[in-house]
Amino acid sequence: MSPTQLLERLGFTSAQLKTQVKRLSGGQRRRLQLLLVLLSEPNVLVLDEPTNDLDTDVLAAMEDLLDSWPGTLVVVSHDRYLLERVTDDQYAVLDGGLRHLPGGVDEYVELTRTRRAAADGVGTFGGGSSSATAAPAPRAVQLSGSEQRALEKELQSVERRMAKIGELTEGVHHEMVMHDQSDFAGLAALTKQIGELEAENSDLEERWLDLSEQAGR
């Protein structure tokens, strides 16, 4: 494909082909950056939240492009549908390590639910003679249309905030690299800032899982 064809496939109109880069939106710049990478014909792509700031139509085009890409693809994303479509194996960061999920994102959701139940003292525990009786599964609640829309709206809000935290964390990491390495107090302040962002992101992930379960995702 030519650069023009790739640009059009990634949602750029003919009128935008002469637009200055500084006038492009965040999502357009992200797509342009991906285009420049693809034109170099790499063997491996490493993408960090590639679908941020994309509308539905462009998101579909992005998924089509990645799904048909012949090389090795490593994607970090909270978009489970993207992960399930364009990747063959999924992994989760748990307890400070990387865990393979043969069952995909569903396994991650179930694993997180089980861990949360265990932390709350609910579920069956092996080992010795002690055990706890699992609580009955909650009955599914049928949501009204307005409740479903409210859940989806909050889900989108949580996802946007998680994406924003990712950008902020990346910015702080960059600032640490550029910072005077002899300024230990400054580096400590930046490290604390990263810790606060990661803590907020962890809370948001828990909320995202709760909302996803309620919305039936």
Rank of each mutant, 00 (worst) to 15 (best):
M178P: 01
L7F: 13
S14A: 15
S202T: 15
E8D: 08
F184I: 07
D183S: 07
E8Q: 15
R217D: 07
Q90E: 12
V21Q: 10
L82A: 03
A137F: 04
L65I: 06
A118V: 12
R115K: 11
S130A: 14
L38P: 01
A150D: 07
L190E: 01
L35E: 14
R31H: 05
N43I: 00
L94F: 07
L82N: 05
L47M: 05
P102M: 05
P3L: 03
A134Y: 08
M162C: 05
G128K: 11
L197R: 09
V177W: 05
G128A: 09
D95I: 05
K153Y: 02
A134H: 12
R116N: 10
V21H: 12
L197N: 06
P3F: 07
T133N: 07
V105I: 11
T13W: 03
L47E: 03
L209Q: 12
A137P: 00
W208F: 14
L6R: 07
L111P: 00
T4L: 15
T56S: 12
G96C: 03
Q142M: 09
A163S: 11
T19Y: 10
P102S: 05
A163T: 03
L190K: 07
G97N: 04
V86F: 12
V58A: 05
A189E: 04
E200C: 10
R29I: 01
E49P: 02
Q20A: 08
T72R: 08
T51Y: 06
S40F: 00
H100M: 06
G11Y: 11
D120E: 15
L94M: 07
L24G: 03
E198W: 02
